[in-house]
Design a protein around this nucleic acid. Structure first.
Lengths: 193, 193
DNA sequence: TTACAATTGATCCATCTGGATATATTGTGC
DNA sequence: GCACAATATATCCAGATGGATCAATTGTAA
């Protein structure tokens, strides 16, 4: 099937055999373009920073490793985000008495204030994105999202296991690049391997 | 409210005033950790490459700019993804007769084959993620996703406009000044982090 | 025609990302 | 106690990212 209309192409992809993954990814990608860029421009802060700030304000005293569970991202990304938040005086990282390796995170008043500002804009944005649904639909969508989010295979896949290796790739030969040092386990994110 | 259980924290965030945005973002972030890493490991290819390959196989003859509409990403990212796909012999970029600026994209047989492999795995992954829903729920979820995806404010926000400036400036109508890169259509609009 | 804005895609380059690794601490078994 | 694995976080650095810009073309209006 052929078409030249971008909207028709999008509609067709979102109705294909990969409709579910493509649809939800499209929504989040498109929203990220708007939201992340806005927060970056207005507050000079990448997305992982205000995610971390949100969590810290919501759960004062949590540890960096808890953030990995709330916002699945590489561990060093979280570490740097916290360093930035601390450098800006938005959070405090205090050594944990029970475990000297860990640090407990607490928002400063400035951090709490800034988050309140961001939260307000984010709420408006949320209503903008989900406002096309009526309130019953919104409730339904949220409930289904939660069901998906708590599914056991979302984070621990069997069809795409962590230890999968490279396939033969019989037909590349033409790329000078070729060497990639990937491998090994997933530091940080997983609780077991 | 205080808790030390990461699962309880997650549940609480996903039920907060930002529940909808946080929930859908969580699902996609978690899935990306699994899917993108897998494809990268197995096929040595970043996510934007197989997205572009999928689109090219689905709509042979499309132009790079169409990809921006299908997969909202920075324009240079798309440009590089296509260069890589071509270097690997997975697509051809042929000059467009109607418009010498543009190039039309066509999959090679190798590209079509590789996409078939990736598509199969992606389908399995999709069933893994959405399999926690019964088929009525899946249909409902998909329909609601589509409604959200086609909402006019998803891509063109009013609360987070493109021309927003640094902190301190509230969202007054801004300056509808001269040289603002307004696009009535949707060219090079994109870019986000 | 000429001039100029708009559009398509490629490229520059400062910054960011993330896999690997390092450092410090805790826990466990002997 | 000691040795060693596991855990919490920080840091290194090759390579990716993305905002800005460029060159080439097209469209448009005098």
């Amino acid at each position: 099937m052929q078409t030249d209309d971008p909207d028709a192409m999008l509609a067709q992809l979102l109705g294909s055999d990969l409709s579910e993954i493509l649809s939800i990814s499209y929504v989040v990608l498109a929203n990220n373009q708007v939201t992340n860029r806005h927060i970056e421009r207005v507050h000079d802060m990448p997305v992982q920073c205000w995610s971390a700030l949100l969590a810290t304000v919501s759960f004062p005293g949590l540890r960096a490793r808890d953030l990995l569970h709330l916002f699945p991202r590489p561990q060093n990304t979280v570490s740097r985000a916290l360093a930035l938040l601390e450098a800006r005086g938005l959070i405090d990282q205090r050594p944990c008495p029970q475990d000297a390796r860990a640090k407990r995170l607490y928002p400063t008043p400035a951090g709490t204030d800034l988050l309140a500002t961001i939260r307000q804009t984010a709420r408006l944005r949320q209503d903008e994105v989900f406002g096309v649904l009526d309130s019953d639909e919104r409730a339904t969508f949220l409930a289904l999202c939660h069901k998906i989010a708590t599914g056991p295979r979302l984070v621990r896949s069997t069809v795409m296991p962590d230890q999968a290796k490279r396939t033969g790739m019989p037909l590349d030969a033409g790329v000078p690049d070729a060497r990639s040092p990937r491998d090994s386990g997933d530091s940080g994110f997983s609780s077991g391997k």
